[in-house]
Computed example of a mutant assay.
Amino acid sequence: MSGKSFAVIGLGQFGMTLAKELANADYDVLAIDDKDENIQEIADTVTYAVRADVREPGILKSLGVQNVDVAIIAVAENMEASITATMQVKDLGVPLVLAKAMNSLHGRILEKIGADQVIYPERSMGIRVARNFTASGFEDVFELSTEFSMAEFRIPGEWVGKSLSEIRLREQHHINLVAVKHGDSVNVNLNPAEKLEAGCILVAVGKNEDLNKFRKPL
């Protein structure tokens, strides 16, 4: 793993999905929302989940958001909370701040107050679907940030019958295998000595530049 840690602020459908995917990929995730039911839903999945109103001065600092590598502001429906949270995390010096916008005007405001990247989920989903069709070799792609993604791809023929320790995926290809799928079965407790079977789907996390090498046959 890259060792990156994330704060996801706002657990609507977009924030909830993103936080769960990051946590399932074994990243440290701090999830923040002002609704108890959302915190209860995700508490057992992420590293730390807390109920808080991000409009409260100093609240994000008290929760340790300054210690994460990436902050994702997903409270777009409440523009006041969106802007306040973005300003707070920028003031705390978080290296990468991504903020969800409802529209272009909202996005321009977020850029002006320092968001490193503005996210338009509906637009991004359209791009993701298009990429999935054009990315031969990938069964699915989920962008974690501008630099890292999670991708599913069919096992290359030359890997069939070999173990993870023999393939040395991390050492030779700089990506981390997080799961192996056989039909509807998903194995996340990987045994380095277990032989990989023909037809299985590998789920890996890594830098986009490294994962892109798997879009074409090895």
Rank of each mutant, 00 (worst) to 15 (best):
K112E: 13
L110W: 14
A115V: 15
G114D: 12
A99P: 08
R131F: 10
G157V: 02
T146Y: 05
E139I: 15
V141F: 11
E147D: 10
M125E: 14
R154D: 10
Q117H: 13
R108D: 14
L105H: 10
Y120P: 01
N132R: 14
F148Y: 13
F133E: 10
S163H: 01
S165W: 00
A130E: 12
D116M: 04
W159F: 05
N103T: 03
F148G: 00
L144T: 09
P121Q: 08
F138A: 15
H106D: 08
R108H: 13
K100E: 08
S145V: 02
E122N: 15
S165N: 07
S145L: 00
A151M: 02
T146R: 12
S165K: 02
A99R: 09
P121L: 09
K100M: 04
I127G: 01
A130P: 12
A135Q: 13
R123L: 14
V97L: 09
I155A: 00
V97M: 07
L164A: 00
A135I: 07
G137F: 06
L164I: 00
D140N: 12
T134K: 11
E152L: 00
D140H: 12
E158T: 07
D140E: 15
N132D: 13
R123K: 15
D140C: 11
K100F: 01
V160Q: 09
S104K: 14
L98A: 05
L98G: 06
V141T: 13
V118M: 14
A99T: 14
P121D: 14
V129E: 10
L164G: 00
S104C: 03
W159V: 01
G161N: 05
G161I: 02
V141H: 05
G137P: 05
K162M: 06
E122A: 12
Y120M: 03
Q117F: 13
I109K: 09
F153I: 01
Y120L: 06
R123H: 14
I155W: 00
I113E: 08
V129S: 11
M125H: 15
A115I: 10
F148P: 01
N103F: 03
V160H: 04
G126R: 05
A151G: 00
G137R: 05
D116T: 01
F138K: 10
K112I: 08
N103R: 08
M125K: 13
F153E: 03
G107P: 11
D140M: 09
R123C: 06
A99D: 06
V97H: 03
L96I: 06
R123W: 09
I127Y: 07
I127M: 11
E152F: 00
G157I: 03
G126D: 04
F138H: 12
V129G: 10
R131E: 15
P156W: 01
N103M: 04
S145T: 08
G137W: 03
R154K: 13
I113A: 09
L144R: 06
R128V: 02
E147S: 04
S149R: 02
W159I: 00
I109R: 07
G161M: 04
A135E: 11
I119P: 02
M150Y: 07
E147L: 02
A130S: 14
G137I: 04
F138T: 11
F148C: 03
R128E: 05
K100T: 03
A99H: 05
D140I: 08
L164K: 00
R154E: 13
I119A: 05
V160A: 06
V97D: 00
G137D: 05
A101N: 11
T146E: 13
F142D: 05
G126S: 07
K100V: 07
A99S: 14
A101T: 11
